[in-house]
Computed example of a mutant assay.
Amino acid sequence: MRRVVVLTRGLPLHHAGGMESVAWDLARELARTAPVTVLTTSLPGRAEFELDGVRVRALPGTPPGRYSAAWWRGSRAALAAELSDGSVAGVLSVSAGAFSGVDLAAGRGARTVLQAHGTSVMELTSKLTSRRLRPVLSSVRNVHGLLRDVATYRRFDTVAAIGPSVERSLTRPPLGRLVAMPPVHLLPNGIDTARFHPDPAAAARVRRELAVPEGSPLLLVAGRLHPQKRVDRSVQLLTGSGAVLVLAGDGPERAPLQRLAAELGVDDRVRFLGAVERGRLPALYAAADVSLLTSQWREGLPMAVLESLACGTPVVTSLTTAPVEGAGDAVTRADATSPRALAATVGDVLERGRSTVPLLPPGYDLASVARRYAVLLGAG
């Protein structure tokens, strides 16, 4: 049986994050039908081990969870070793993970698939339109990233775009004109519906633990508290309402958000949970009446949206977040720059109520998505 090698800078073992969770869930599912090895950055006290049926090689000397010169050197050498016996059918690059070794895979006859969570063009656009000094200044790095992408994308056999906005960015100008792009397939993030599903008992338990008053709507933001995520818009929704807001995540905006909640007089109705283990998320989604994503970033297809739907929880997103095909009114996009429009949209969704059955459209479950990846990787 031919093997699959996945290269990613981070896993949930490094830190909680959407891209990390996507990579690990997909590796676990692929391992049901073919041997899978994941090459990743260093983990304290661990170098090579097996977990959930996946062989993991954490490369020593590489800074955890990020790209570096040591990662580019080390991942290339590690991939060369994996390819040496000719048993590898396909190599999956999570974002830029395999950029330094994609040519080696091609030389050994292994299929190469780039999983694109976004593009440098998307990030550059978001930063330039943020009107904040620090993101605008840091956009210089994205120009360098764009040049790297132009040079590297064409080396892959296939690109898997995780959402429609990513697909458009890859296939239309400027990237579509600058790069002789390989075939681009729209492959959404897959959700493990055995873990993420409606759970009334868990929902009741969570509401008790969080001291949510009987009858009060529960709003949830699951994700990093980063300035570009504009979680302040979600906090402002609490003024003039009896809702409780749960923030499941940590980041540099935590202290400013705590100050904002106090200034608005709603700090008693905001639950700051900090970084949350992924195993706790299904119960939080199941307990929420509405899941919120009020980001000003151009978002591809965030895991938080799909996980919420799998748990029967409707979602309200900003207009910068890509729509979910087939979700219908389970996902409502609103003008998050207008507090009045956002509040009206959330009110409408609350009035309709949450679902007792999953809202995730067909084709977004992990097993279906993994089967499509297996075919592209030559392991199907």
Rank of each mutant, 00 (worst) to 15 (best):
residue 147 L to K: 06
residue 221 V to A: 09
residue 95 S to F: 10
residue 180 A to L: 12
residue 184 V to P: 02
residue 214 E to N: 13
residue 225 L to I: 07
residue 144 H to S: 11
residue 187 L to G: 10
residue 110 A to C: 13
residue 198 P to V: 14
residue 162 I to R: 04
residue 177 R to D: 08
residue 134 R to Y: 11
residue 111 R to Q: 13
residue 123 E to M: 02
residue 100 S to D: 06
residue 132 R to P: 00
residue 207 R to L: 05
residue 134 R to L: 13
residue 152 T to S: 11
residue 119 T to W: 04
residue 174 P to A: 08
residue 213 P to H: 08
residue 157 D to N: 13
residue 192 D to Q: 06
residue 106 A to K: 11
residue 114 L to M: 09
residue 206 V to Q: 10
residue 98 A to T: 04
residue 190 G to W: 02
residue 111 R to S: 06
residue 123 E to L: 10
residue 94 V to L: 02
residue 110 A to D: 05
residue 113 V to F: 03
residue 190 G to H: 09
residue 183 P to D: 13
residue 140 V to A: 15
residue 93 S to Q: 08
residue 108 R to P: 01
residue 102 V to H: 00
residue 221 V to F: 14
residue 126 S to R: 05
residue 103 D to A: 15
residue 219 L to F: 10
residue 137 L to S: 06
residue 143 V to I: 13
residue 186 L to V: 12
residue 223 G to S: 11
residue 128 L to C: 04
residue 170 L to Y: 04
residue 97 G to L: 00
residue 174 P to T: 09
residue 220 L to V: 11
residue 160 A to V: 06
residue 192 D to E: 14
residue 127 K to C: 00
residue 146 L to H: 09
residue 213 P to T: 13
residue 164 P to V: 11
residue 136 V to C: 09
residue 167 E to H: 14
residue 191 I to K: 03
residue 195 R to M: 12
residue 159 V to W: 01
residue 101 G to I: 02
residue 134 R to G: 03
residue 214 E to F: 10
residue 108 R to A: 12
residue 164 P to S: 10
residue 165 S to L: 12
residue 194 A to E: 13
residue 198 P to D: 11
residue 213 P to C: 13
residue 182 P to M: 04
residue 114 L to G: 00
residue 101 G to T: 08
residue 152 T to N: 13
residue 149 D to W: 01
residue 100 S to R: 06
residue 152 T to D: 06
residue 154 R to S: 12
residue 113 V to E: 00
residue 136 V to M: 14
residue 181 M to L: 15
residue 214 E to W: 07
residue 143 V to E: 04
residue 173 P to S: 14
residue 98 A to P: 02
residue 132 R to D: 14
residue 100 S to C: 09
residue 175 L to A: 09
residue 158 T to L: 01
residue 169 S to D: 09
residue 214 E to T: 15
residue 93 S to E: 08
residue 113 V to W: 01
residue 145 G to T: 01
residue 97 G to N: 04
residue 144 H to P: 06
residue 143 V to K: 03
residue 154 R to L: 00
residue 140 V to Q: 07
residue 175 L to R: 02
residue 101 G to N: 02
residue 178 L to P: 03
residue 98 A to Y: 03
residue 146 L to G: 12
residue 148 R to H: 11
residue 126 S to Y: 05
residue 110 A to R: 01
residue 156 F to D: 01
residue 167 E to W: 11
residue 166 V to P: 00
residue 190 G to D: 02
residue 189 N to G: 09
residue 93 S to F: 07
residue 164 P to A: 08
residue 217 P to F: 10
residue 153 Y to R: 00
residue 122 M to W: 05
residue 153 Y to V: 06
residue 204 A to G: 14
residue 146 L to M: 15
